[in-house]
Amino acid sequence: MSHKSFVWICLLPLAAVTAAFFVLPMARLLVTGAEGPRGLAEYLAILAEPRYRATLLNTVLLAAANTIATLIVATIAGLFLQRHRFPGRAVLVAILTFPLAFPGVVIGFMIILLAGRQGLIGDVSSRLVGDKIVFAYSIYGLFLGYLYFSIPRVILTIMAAAQKLDPSLEEAARSLGAGSWAVLRDVVLPALAPALVASGAIAFATAMGAFGTAFTLATNIDVLPMLIYTEFTLAGNLATSAALSVGLGVMTWLILALARSFTGNSVAAAG
């Protein structure tokens, strides 16, 4: 057996698995999306139908806002945790990364406990200002949930990347007159760029597709995964939900590709 055919034989199982669990269902999904009464036009409906379009926009905005907020919070926290040693640091890192273990349903449950009708925030606010603040069942609750979900992942990535930063780069910048902000802008963030893009991409994709949290909070929040669910189980609209699924996938992929190419130069240079 030649070396080449040996490699091909080794690749066979991978090919089989890829076909069975990835390519075939995808193809089926694509076909199903076009099998509705509207045919291929079903795909255009995501953009053409006002309700779908609004939901799509909502989802993208929510995911984008969540990604940006996550990156800001996690970068600050990650850098701080990496650079400072203080008593209780290990415990703090453990607490911060604890949500990694929870599925979306539990996160949703925790948001309700925090900002729901019997929630902590409502309790405190009604006692303080006599007004019960409840936002768990809205898009804000969902935002908080996603934040809770993605911060731990991003913090861990940032901490790992920050550990690899060359301290003499920052010292060199300072010797040339750079203050803290200039060091952050010109040295630290460019060096963290690959980690920021990678972890930001995961946060974004997670927020685009997260379903458990949304489902736990309320069934009528306007995000794409919920729409797919209602079209599929409640309305039995197989073609529409398939088309929406494909749309969700393509949209996420497109935005991630865009983000990656946008930072491509700095990523390559920092490599």
């Binding site: 060359d166 010292e171 010797s175 203050g179």
Partner: peptide, 21 residues
């Protein structure tokens, strides 16, 4: 005074050149 206020030129063993510039 911290280093950024001292106007010193430093050359490091690793050179510490900015890879993004």
């Amino acid at each position: 005074q911290p280093i950024e206020k001292r106007n010193v030129g430093m050359v490091f063993q690793s050179y510490a050149l900015f890879p993004n510039m």
